[in-house]
Design a protein around this nucleic acid. Sequence first.
DNA 1: TCAAAAGTGTTCGTTTTACACCCATGT
DNA 2: ACATGGGTGTAAAACGAACACTTTTGA
Lengths: 229, 229
Amino acid sequence: MTLSSTFYSSQDSFLVAVDCIILGFKENEISLLVHKREMEPAKGGMSLMGGFLQNDESLNQAATRVLTNLTGLENIFMEQVGTYGEIDRDPGERVISVCYYALIDLSSYDDTLLKKHNAFWVNINSAAELIFDHPQMVDDAITILRRKASMQPIGFNLLPEKFTLTQLQALYEAIYDHSMDKRNFRKKMLSMGFLQKTDEIDKSGSKKGAFYYQFKEDRNELLNTSYAF
Amino acid sequence: MTLSSTFYSSQDSFLVAVDCIILGFKENEISLLVHKREMEPAKGGMSLMGGFLQNDESLNQAATRVLTNLTGLENIFMEQVGTYGEIDRDPGERVISVCYYALIDLSSYDDTLLKKHNAFWVNINSAAELIFDHPQMVDDAITILRRKASMQPIGFNLLPEKFTLTQLQALYEAIYDHSMDKRNFRKKMLSMGFLQKTDEIDKSGSKKGAFYYQFKEDRNELLNTSYAF
DNA sequence: TCAAAAGTGTTCGTTTTACACCCATGT
DNA sequence: ACATGGGTGTAAAACGAACACTTTTGA
């Protein structure tokens, strides 16, 4: 960096990382994608997937890059959680970390790519074992996910395109970590108006079979209404 | 920075700024503290108060420093809004900006300090005239304020210790930018249980006089309930 | 035939909304 | 006496919570 190109000379500069909280829905639980850290400090510790911001990319681009490198997925729902800036949050060196969370559909996901990065899924309840301030990041992300999922249909990013109401309820029960009444759940979901019943039937979950639903195309119109669970 | 002290060598590093959205309640409107920028680029433009993060402070400390330098106030409610990292968001040089909002009580605030920084209050509706991506930051802060004020008694940070119900209603009407029914507002506020009626009367607002209220000390117990306006 | 999951309504209590008048006081 | 803002109650609607049985079908 040459002085002639700078407006804000003599200011301190910092490493900036993006850390990604990648969430999936597996066996009726929320899962978190983590990896065994390959560098010191805390080598071998369980860590969120992250990477350093580079000069040629925005924060959102960096988060997308980290996510895509690891998972091979694109066009994934992703949103900022917050930025963590305690001086000693990373014992190796000072790093400002901008944290994102992403929601992915695991129903047809091939995770061979994950193995190359020593990455694996753990139950969200194991997040306390993460290194540094990553447990706090996950807590904050879950808080945001719960709040947003009660206002907007974002939870659906964790499901395949077509899903049964039973699957949807299981997802919400996992997000909020409590069981819900089937009749009330269905009544409320259907009254929100963004579910479209298909004529396809899922026979995998029961002998009787359950209708598949999908999201209406126009669900963006519905984002301003608030729904609480 | 010497290589021997670094774990993450050869990564790009960045200027990190904190920008503060300082909000006050003035003449029944939400006001925003801004200043005329003293450096290029955009010198003379209307800007949020900000500063660069320094090596010896956390992000929260930096935000507090900026706020205290400017206003002389300490122990102010402050919370992160988000982090803005587009490559060209600051045309001078690349800067990652972590944005905070703060709520302050203007009722007995002496703003001589503000003049030293070319700072002044503008109506929140003038935020669109701010430079760079500061209008977006203000939009995001207002969204957060509205959401949080409906769940937790944070709006009170904008009022003096003692206030009348009419003042409180005017504050909420300013935050949400719509008028509310007086009877319903009072009923709801009082039912929430964190208001304490005093025996003092404000005669400044009316001939009849209105009782002053204050917050109960134990209001932290109440933060988990959700209240919508 | 039976086990397993899908699907379906009603009642009750709570919360939210809409709405209009009297009171106390200073001028 | 009157203008100004302070203070109060009720009825209707919407919403949330609790609750149990019938249907379909594969094994």
